[in-house]
Design a protein around this nucleic acid. Structure first.
Length: 199
DNA sequence: TAAGGGATTGGCT
DNA sequence: GCCAATCCCTTAA
């Protein structure tokens, strides 16, 4: 079943990031369905997290959506090239988000290969937030898209992820955030080959 | 196999 | 102007 908005509006973004492992992320563009199981996430926690774009209550045109009530997409450009897909969580005014870093492909593999310009399926088809967005056809047009709609959504297919199969570590690429760069807020499925980094 | 550097653009200072 | 929540190709061992 599709996750209801109440899943996203809860206050503990770190817990939500963990719970998203084993859930299924889908996109539907012009009737073309692509998606798969989420195997890697990172939590970004609003004002108290120096790695978060909205820390210190910074509010710009780009970060505005982070203050929205949970359950919408935050898509933004990094390094001038890649669109990163984030899930906004918590209630209105609390700028929390979960970055989806990798999925295990399930449906629309042919289409994802086309979008990635790849000949055959390899782990790096969807391993990494930049390539994941390419494979799923996510771009900045999806900024603010509700995850309860028919374009981008997440489903619970009853996959149980036991706590001992979840690995935890510091987030990627946030060294500039000082102490907060060390927070163990990256979660991935132990031993899953679709994860972008196993360290 | 591991490490290094280029690509490329929007947002902030 | 500078820097960024990345990826991929090239190079060397």
């Amino acid at each position: 079943m599709k996750l209801p908005q109440s899943f996203y509006t809860r206050p503990n973004v770190v817990q939500i990031a963990q719970e998203l492992l084993g859930k299924y992320l889908y996109t539907n563009h012009d009737g073309i369905l692509t998606g798969g199981m989420i195997v890697e996430t990172e939590a970004y926690s609003g004002v108290n997290d120096k790695a978060c774009h909205a820390h210190m209550n910074r509010r710009t045109q780009r970060t505005e959506i982070m203050y929205h009530e949970g359950g919408v997409a935050y898509v933004y450009l990094v390094y001038g090239i890649y669109n990163l897909f984030n899930i906004i969580t918590n209630v209105e005014g609390q700028a929390d988000a979960v970055l989806v870093r990798a999925i295990e492909p399930e449906v629309g593999v042919e289409e994802m290969l086309l979008r990635r310009n790849m000949a055959s399926i390899k782990p790096n088809l969807t391993a990494g937030p930049g390539v994941l967005s390419i494979a799923l056809g996510i771009n900045r047009k999806h900024y603010g898209t509700p995850l309860t709609g028919e374009t981008i959504w997440i489903e619970d297919k009853g996959v149980e992820v036991p706590a001992e199969s979840i690995a935890v570590g510091p987030r990627i690429g946030v060294d500039y955030a000082g102490d907060d760069a060390l927070l163990p807020w990256r979660f991935w499925l132990k031993g899953n080959k679709w994860v972008s980094r196993k360290g």
